[in-house]
Design a protein around this nucleic acid. Structure first.
Length: 438
DNA sequence: TCTGGGGTCCTAGGACCC
DNA sequence: TCTGGGGTCCTAGGACCC
C-alpha cells in the first residue's frame, strides 16, 4: 500500500502558522515579483480566485474584499515543510519526498510490519499523523492511502474534500475503489493533464471509472503511449508508476522574470551571474558537477507592441564543475553570445546539464590551472558555510553585486529589485525576525 | 503599470556504428 | 530482377507534474 501526505494550501498554511488571526479568512500567496496567485486558502477559492491569476486582475475583480496577500517566502516554506518531512520520517517505514508539499510513504505487507502493533489500522495511522503534524508544526495535511500511488492521490483529494474522513481517506477494498472512481472526474486524475483530458472527454470518458472500464487494448490503440497506460493500470489497482528513488537532478535551472525590463548588458550580466551562482550551489548541495552551462534570454511576450527576441545557447566544458567561479564565467560567456542590444528583456535563466557525481572526476591533463581545483573547492566550501550560518547571499562574487554609478561616476552597490511588497518575516531562520513574547 | 519557477519522462527521427 | 540486420546516441518536441 502507498500513502501520500499532502499539505493543505501549503504556502497559505505556512503563512498562517505565524498569523493565526488569518484562519478562516481569504488568504493568497503570490509568485515572484508579486505576479500571479500561486496559493489560495479555501476562503479565497470560494470567492472564485483562480490559481495562476495575475495579481493585478485579482485586485481589479475584488477591489473591496478583505483578502490577505503575501509575497512568496520560500525560505519560510522550505523550512516548515522540512519539519513536516522530519515527522513523516519518524512515523513511516519508508518514504520519498515528491515535491515541496507532498510526500509518498510505502507500507510493506501488513504482517511484516511492527508499525501495526501500534496502530490498529492504516486510517488510524493517518489520523494520528495528521494530528501530530498539526500540533508540532501547525501545518494541516491530507492523507490518502491506496494500493497504487494514483489511487492514494485520489484518496487524498477525498480526504481534503470531505471532513468526515478526519483528514485521512483509505481505499482498501474493491468496493471503495469502484465508488471512488465513479465520483472522480477524469481531468483530476494524477497523470491526466489538459490535453489527455480533452481527448478522453471527446471519447465519452467523463470519470476515472469510465476510463478504467475500457479494455487495455483500447487504451493502447487510442493513445499508443506507455505513460497513460500506467495511469490506467494504477486506476485498476495494478502498481505501475515506478517509485522514484529521489535520484539526483539531471538538470538544474535558476531563472527569474525581472520586475521591470532590462536593456543593459551589464545589468543582465549581474542577474545571470546570480542565477549561475545559485545553480552552482544547487549542484554542490546534491554533490554533483555539471559539464554543460546554458543561458536563455527573452523579451516580454505580453508586450505585443515591442519587438520580440528569444535565444538559448550552451557551453560545454572539458571538465565537469560545481565551482561558482567556473559556472559564473561560463554563463557570462554564453550571455555575451546571445545578447542583442536594443531589446527590452524580461526574463533570463541559467540551466546546467550533463550532471554527474562529484567523484570520481575526470580532470583535464592539459589544464595548466589544475592546481586551482582545490583552491576553488575550498573557497566554495567557505562561502557555502558562511551563507548557511548568516543567510543566503551574505557573501557573493563581485560579479554578483548589483551596482550603479553615483553622481561622481563611482559604483554604488544596491539590492536587486525583485518585487516582494508583501513578504512575511522568517522567524525560524533569521535571528533578526525572532518572535518576542511578552 | 502589473502576467512565476522549477522539474521529469517518452517518442520519433536522424546520424552514426558494426 | 535482385539491395541486410542489428544496434547506439543525440536532439527536439510534446506531454505531464508540483
Amino acid at each position: 500500500m502507498y500513502g501520500i501526505i499532502d499539505c493543505d494550501n501549503c504556502y497559505v498554511s505556512c503563512e498562517r502558522v505565524f498569523r493565526p488571526d488569518l484562519n478562516g479568512k481569504p488568504v493568497v500567496v503570490l509568485s515572484n515579483n508579486d505576479g500571479c496567485v500561486v496559493a489560495r486558502s479555501n476562503e479565497a477559492k470560494a470567492l472564485g480566485i483562480k490559481a495562476g491569476m495575475p495579481y493585478f486582475k485579482m485586485m481589479q475583480q475584488w477591489p473591496d474584499k478583505d483578502i490577505a496577500v503575501f509575497s512568496s517566502n520560500y525560505e519560510l516554506y522550505g523550512e516548515l515543510t522540512a519539519r513536516v518531512v522530519d515527522i513523516i520520517r519518524q512515523e513511516a517505514p519508508s518514504y520519498f519526498r515528491y515535491s515541496i508539499d507532498e510526500c509518498f510513504v510505502y507500507f510493506p505487507p501488513l504482517n511484516d510490519s511492527s508499525l501495526f502493533t501500534l496502530h490498529s489500522s492504516l486510517s488510524e495511522w493517518g489520523e494520528n499523523l495528521h494530528k501530530k503534524i498539526k500540533k508540532w508544526v501547525g501545518m494541516p495535511v491530507s492523507i490518502g492511502i491506496g494500493p497504487t500511488k494514483t489511487l492514494a492521490k485520489m484518496a487524498s483529494h477525498f480526504a481534503k474534500k470531505y471532513p468526515g474522513y478526519h483528514h485521512c481517506c483509505l481505499i482498501d477494498s474493491e468496493e471503495k475503489r469502484l465508488k471512488a472512481l465513479k465520483l472522480y472526474p477524469i481531468e483530476e486524475v494524477w497523470g491526466i493533464g489538459r490535453r489527455y483530458a480533452a481527448r478522453l472527454q471527446a471519447l465519452g470518458v467523463k470519470t476515472a471509472y469510465d476510463f478504467a472500464q475500457h479494455h487495455e487494448t483500447w487504451v493502447r490503440n487510442t493513445f499508443n503511449n506507455i505513460v497513460i497506460l500506467r495511469t490506467w493500470k494504477e486506476l485498476n489497482g495494478i502498481d505501475a508508476v515506478p517509485n522514484e528513488e529521489m535520484a539526483k537532478k539531471k538538470s538544474i535551472c535558476t531563472s527569474r522574470s525581472f520586475s521591470g525590463m532590462i536593456t543593459e548588458l551589464d545589468t543582465l550580466r549581474t542577474n545571470v551571474a546570480n542565477y549561475a551562482a545559485r545553480c552552482a550551489e544547487k549542484l554542490r548541495r546534491q554533490d554533483t558537477v555539471a559539464s554543460i552551462v546554458s543561458v536563455f534570454l527573452n523579451t516580454n511576450f505580453f508586450r505585443e507592441d515591442l519587438p520580440q527576441y528569444w535565444n538559448f545557447q550552451e557551453k560545454r566544458l572539458t571538465v565537469g564543475t560545481n565551482s561558482t567561479i567556473d559556472i559564473v564565467k561560463a554563463a557570462t560567456e554564453v550571455l555575451h553570445e546571445i545578447y542583442v542590444p536594443g531589446y527590452h528583456y524580461k526574463k533570463a535563466g541559467v540551466i546546467v546539464m550533463g550532471i554527474s557525481p562529484t567523484s570520481p572526476q575526470q580532470l583535464d591533463l592539459f589544464d595548466y590551472n589544475a592546481k586551482d581545483y582545490d583552491k576553488k573547492k575550498r573557497l566554495d566550501k567557505a562561502m557555502d558555510r558562511i551563507n548557511k550560518i548568516n543567510g543566503s547571499e551574505t557573501i557573493v562574487l563581485g560579479s554578483q553585486q548589483y551596482t550603479q554609478k553615483d553622481g561622481k561616476g563611482r559604483a554604488e552597490v544596491f539590492a536587486n529589485a525583485i518585487k516582494h511588497d508583501h513578504r512575511s518575516k522568517n522567524p525560524t531562520t533569521r535571528w533578526s525576525d525572532i518572535i518576542k513574547l511578552k
